[in-house]
């Protein structure tokens, strides 16, 4: 959400804080507005995924045997690895916010870079998982071509697997772009204890992306 980031203020010479936008009276007001905006955006994200979760729940209830059989094709170890990686990235994101709040610029840069690294590891693992599924013909809907199934209807599980992890993956990628942009600004020295709202609201977004995975992991990998 680039919009919560103020540009340099045109009247900076009047003694305003450099990142205060003209229509706000003070930094605190601008910070609060940014946080409200991001929380509202997160609500829309929860509802976006909510539709898929409800659909998954209903289809799982209708085809329990197929979902059970299909989920054995997933690799729990890789799923668990990705869960751990994302949890660590949430921790480094929290540390980035703390570093920005306390004017520790070098730590801020370090923790932002670590967060991007973790997100990258997640995506690489996801890539190997996906290519394995493609290879086995474990594809969504009418492209499902896995041989030797004893339980019919497993394509439905993979429809949801790819839609939900795919949408989540897109959010991870968007998060990587946002954090990379924070990193560039951190390198330019934009953030300080006076002005760190982009770090904070991007952090909120990143935790939601993490949280959605925390729900996806047991739903997909750990059915029993």
């Amino acid at each position: 959400m680039s919009t919560v980031t103020p540009s340099a203020h045109p009247h900076a010479e009047h003694g305003h804080p450099p990142f205060l936008q003209h229509h706000f009276r003070e930094m605190a007001q601008q910070f609060d507005a940014a946080k409200i905006g991001m929380w509202l955006f997160l609500v829309t994200e929860v509802l976006l995924f909510g539709g898929l979760f409800v659909g998954y729940g209903i289809m799982h209830a209708r085809h329990p045997e197929a979902f059970m059989a299909a989920h054995h094709h997933l690799d729990r170890t890789l799923g668990a690895l990705n869960t751990v990686v994302l949890l660590i990235s949430s921790f480094t994101m929290v540390m980035s916010v703390w570093a920005a709040q306390t004017d520790r610029r070098k730590l801020l840069i370090l923790f932002l870079a670590l967060t991007i690294l973790c997100a990258g590891v997640f995506m690489v693992v996801k890539y190997f998982e996906y290519s394995h599924k493609f290879h086995e013909g474990l594809l969504p809907g009418k492209y499902y071509s896995h041989k030797g199934d004893t339980v019919p209807g497993q394509f439905m599980f993979f429809s949801f697997y790819f839609m939900m992890t795919g949408l989540h993956g897109i959010h991870v990628l968007a998060g990587m772009v946002a954090i990379a942009w924070l990193l560039v600004r951190a390198l330019k020295g934009h953030f300080s204890s006076e002005y760190y709202s982009p770090v904070e609201v991007t952090g909120l977004y990143w935790h939601l992306v993490d949280l959605i995975w925390i729900y996806l992991f047991p739903l997909m990998y750990l059915i029993s």
Binding site: P140, Y143, F155, M163
Partner: peptide, 10 residues
């Protein structure tokens, strides 16, 4: 769209 493109079945 997914139903039309992939035939996801929901």
């Amino acid at each position: 769209v997914m139903e039309r493109v992939l035939g996801v079945g929901i």
